[in-house]
Design a binder for these strands. Structure first.
Lengths: 208, 208
DNA sequence: ATAGTTATTAACAATTTTGTCAAACAATTT
DNA sequence: AAATTGTTTGACAAAATTGTTAATAACTAT
């Protein structure tokens, strides 16, 4: 064995588990399959992580952090003026999706549908989200007052942004064949999609 | 036993299975749990449906039909002028979501992620979808030519509509607590959401 | 080198889940 | 009412999956 390929089994298992859980979900994941991907016997998995459940929770902790970062990114830079800030937030959020395309489905299925897990996440993000919402709403109200934009309801707008930014990743395998040649190049499609989402939201809030 | 409660076990199992599969997915579903919900022994399940897989495929057939109907509804009434047709399509599609709120998640998870199932659906809807797309695109091009609307790319527009209409149902459990009092009444929220989605799409295509 | 620690393996145990079967039961037909 | 058919059950078998253990190997520090 050379020094280089001495990545710890513990780490190899973690990486294999991430792939397995993110693509198949908790119920669909198999500990044996994870061990095989990691190139170790499945006893190793239990040696390091005790149970499938505990291994899952290690992955969960990682994803919850990423989700938190993604949400923060979506709030945009508070120093920018509102319209620029929203553009920035949408683009950043979308970029996070591109970087973690498997996360949305995993998140929606594994976390949200399990009350005990969901409350775990909720406690960690709800308060700071409310703050940002209140902040955005007061800025939006002020801008509307000045006649710069339409009067908008921030929670509703955020749902629109999340819908537009997240759905293409949850449904990519569905979109791809139906849209056919439109998605000849994934990179190009994603760039177009990002621009389209920003365009949609801008047209929603700008006065005409 | 009265005559009235003599709903066949076969039917009871099917209904229980639908609930189980739609909420927990194939991997998460348990045949025993289905039997219990149906109020029969789990041997009955095998007597009528042979295997879990075959029972699942009965549910699948139902959902694929519903999905097909939903997609058709989303194409709107071809006799209406384009803008009205789109409004009609969005509203109808949204109403189908309200009527089958568990379908989107099930569909995205269980069908799309399994190539063999997906091709099954794809064969049954792809051709007629392409037709509608071509139809919509030529109408949109004509309307844009006349200066009535912006020049639009139909596949992209459809992705936007699907994103906006489907996501709230996939993510409802996430949206609910974060949005807090906004969703005090589900009925009202859904009506507002439907209107908002139409508004977003209209503003995207109408010239300003 | 040796003692002590950590890592690894193969075989095995426990549990869960799906699937089978023969016997009992109910309904229907002749 | 006897025969036929379809339904239901409980007990059991098979398979799949997770989890354990004892023996062994590899590494580390003295």
């Amino acid at each position: 064995m050379t020094e280089i390929d001495k990545i710890s089994s513990e780490q190899l298992i973690l990486e294999a588990a991430e792939q397995e859980f993110l693509t198949k979900g908790y119920d669909g994941a198999r500990t044996i399959s994870i061990a095989q991907k990691a190139g170790v016997t499945h006893a190793m998995l239990h040696y390091y992580y005790r149970t499938k459940r505990q291994l899952f929770e290690c992955i969960l902790a990682k994803t919850i952090n990423t989700v938190k970062e993604t949400m923060l990114a979506a709030m945009g830079d508070p120093n920018m003026p509102l319209v620029e800030r929203l553009k920035d937030g949408i683009a950043s959020h979308f970029d996070h999706m591109v970087a973690n395309p498997l996360l949305p489905r995993f998140f929606l299925n594994e976390i949200i549908s399990r009350p005990e897990l969901y409350s775990l996440l909720y406690e960690r993000v709800a308060s700071f989200i409310r703050e940002f919402f209140a902040d955005l709403q007061s800025e939006a109200d002020a801008a509307a007052e000045r006649g710069e934009i339409e009067k908008i309801d921030i929670p509703m707008l955020i749902i629109s942004i999340m819908s537009l930014n997240i759905f293409p990743f949850v449904a990519y395998h569905f979109i791809e064949p139906v849209m056919g040649t439109i998605i000849a190049d994934r990179e190009i499609f994603l760039e177009e999609r990002k621009a389209e989402n920003i365009e949609l939201i801008m047209r929603r809030i700008i006065k005409h």
